[in-house]
């Protein structure tokens, strides 16, 4: 853009550049960004699903069995399979960001990022094991 003599040095372009609504389809990394951001919809869906389960359990055995049968209907099964893929993507991307977001210090030394990442994965495995033990074991 050519600047006329009257315009001060710091003047910005007045018109914002045009950005397509579908800019996130232009590159693989943009698409991954949108997939990651959209995982929040599936996180919210899981909270709803969990609360429906809790409510059914509170209402009695018949309601609980009905919830289990409803979970096996093709639509809900499909929604949950897509949700699981999105939640795993959310977990992997969130843990991958942890070493940058968290600076852990032991004494004067900074804990290396790879250990912070490994710690998150260890936590994931432990939490999953507790969930399985609570629901399937004992």
């Amino acid at each position: 853009m050519s600047q006329s003599q009257e315009q001060p040095e710091y003047q910005h372009r007045v018109l914002p550049p045009h950005i397509s609504t579908f800019w996130w389809l232009e590159k693989g990394s943009y698409f991954a960004f949108i997939l990651r951001e959209l995982s929040c919809v599936f996180v919210a869906w899981f909270v709803v699903y969990l609360l429906l389960l809790v409510r059914a359990v509170g209402q009695g055995d018949a309601a609980y069995q009905q919830f289990l049968a409803w979970s096996a209907t093709p639509l809900i099964l499909l929604v949950n399979i897509v949700s699981l893929l999105s939640l795993v993507f959310h977990a992997v991307t969130f843990f991958a960001a942890a070493p940058q977001a968290m600076v852990v210090k032991v004494g004067p030394n900074k804990v290396p990022g790879s250990l912070v990442l490994a710690g998150h994965y260890a936590g994931w495995v432990a939490a999953s094991a507790v969930v399985c033990w609570l629901l399937l074991g004992a």
Partner: peptide, 30 residues
């Protein structure tokens, strides 16, 4: 919320949303 959901939701959803409905594992009793 991001850390907590990442740690707990996949296993819960795998069990209630997929493993129990498909009969891979029998669901807990009421």
């Amino acid at each position: 919320g991001g850390v907590l959901s990442a740690m707990l939701m996949p296993s819960l959803l795998l069990l209630f949303g997929i493993a129990f409905p498909l009969g891979w594992v029998s669901p807990p009793t009421h």
